[in-house]
Amino acid sequence: MMKKWLLATGLLAIFALSNAQAETVFVTLEKDNAIAVVDPIAGKLLKTIHVGQRPRGIALSVDNKLLYIATSDDNTIRIIDTTTLKEVGQLPSDKDPETFSLSPDGKQLYVSNEDDNLVTVIDVAAKKSVKQIKVGVEPEGIAVSPDNQWVASASETTNMVHWINTKTLEIVDNTLVDPRPRAVAFTADSQQLWVTSEIAGSLTILDVKTKKILKTVKLEVQGVTAEKIQPVGIAIDKNRRFGYVAMGTANRVAVINAQTFAVEKYLLVGQRVWNLAFSPDQKRLYTTNGISNDISIIDVENQKVTKSIGVGRYPWGVVAKP
């Protein structure tokens, strides 16, 4: 009897423990018109859910209950319940949404409309588009600062970061950066904006206060030609110790000291690494590898790639839900 009870509590404890660690990773699959649901601890693809044409950008709501997914070829952002995995609504993103960013309070969503040179501002609760802001040619990377003051929008062909004031929803400044800027990311303290430039193979760090360039970091890997180094996704840890940059066809993630901006390491991951996301506890970093059709898991503390999990065709965006 006692033994049985012990076993039961033991099992319960193990269950509780694994549950505490458990998290779910969602990956958009551009070519499968689906999202992959992954248990990263077990290293398993749990299921694949059809969502719509060409899903790319993905984000979690503030309370983690909803997923927002840009289905580019359907010209809409779909809202998926993270428990039932069923679609519960849509947001009017206008044409060809690819990347978007949610305000820290979850009230606004800002979408890049690449074909129309616009940023669409959506009121999430009302599911209505409230404004369209004219930006440069082919807007792509977009981010809202954690202090909710700024929206940074990068246009790929104009080679600029446009600074949009979140109160007035107008562009107040523009910063010229290296050719073909792709992704933008604010540091947690909202003091810096990091920008990757795909064809220059560089990372530019901007000072949010002055909107000027603090530093340009050229990414170089021995034995890899400069043209293969095409940086895209960025992830910076909360304490601004390290920033990580996905390097596209160089198949590596650059580990950058976020204080000195020195590149400390290049981690070899899957082919054409595209976007990055931290686990909720920031102990792991997930990468989407577009050509090898998998995600890699990086152990952040040891800066080592520990696992790769096949997910489906053209994994693009990734988020991790606790």
């Binding site: 040179n117 440069g136 040619v137 246009s155 062909t157 104009t158 080679n159 600029m160 446009h162 562009i171 523009n174 010229l176």
Partner: peptide, 10 residues
């Protein structure tokens, strides 16, 4: 037209 879109900002 692309250049002028960029040009308007500078």
């Amino acid at each position: 037209s692309d250049n002028n879109t960029t040009g308007q900002f500078i």
